[in-house]
Amino acid sequence: MSAVFVAVLVLLGLGLVFGILLGYSSIRFKVEGNPLVDQVDSLLPQTQCGQCGHPGCRPYAEAIVNADEAINKCPPGGQSTVEALADLLDVEALPLDAESEAEPIKKVAYIREDECIGCTKCIQACPVDAILGAAKQMHTVITSECTGCDLCVEPCPVDCIDMLPLETTLNNWQWPAPKPGIELIATDRQPSIALEVKG
């Protein structure tokens, strides 16, 4: 009898100890905010363009997590973002909801400076403060900060902002993917083909 009693006591004690431990750690190591929203937000390209129908990337992330918004609404992110989101949220990857190509070309804004009248409208539109200028002064885009969101183009009263594709330089040039090899069986190999394919 006393053995049972002891066992019950020990188990109770253990339960108590672990309960306290868990309770303490849940307070001590409390995670601030919604970590899932943060994770989703970190996958979004942060272009802040609003093309998803939300006023920025974070609101879209919140909508995805809290309001069951579709994950395929981010054109700048392209299909790869959709896939990453599908991976994270363990849902099916939908095709990108945009008429444009799946992997959009990266663009940056460029102000034709001698046409700028210095109205500062573009500055107010830019979500990342990538435009430099002052009233009645020429404005210019800090290319390295521009996310290519397109939001500054419309407000310009003299239409002097262009979206230009990012120039390839030695520093951002990339090795292309190897051409998918003509994977033949060795006996099918023909000299003409062999000559065509230069390494």
């Binding site: 937000d41 970190s42 390209p45 942060q46 802040q48 990337c57 979500p127 403060d129 900060e145």
Partner: peptide, 19 residues
């Protein structure tokens, strides 16, 4: 490139939040 974009995105987020 992905890393770079991630870095840029973080940077953009920072700037956006700062704004």
């Amino acid at each position: 490139k992905e890393d770079d974009e991630q870095r840029k995105a973080d940077h953009a987020r920072q700037r956006f939040e700062a704004r």
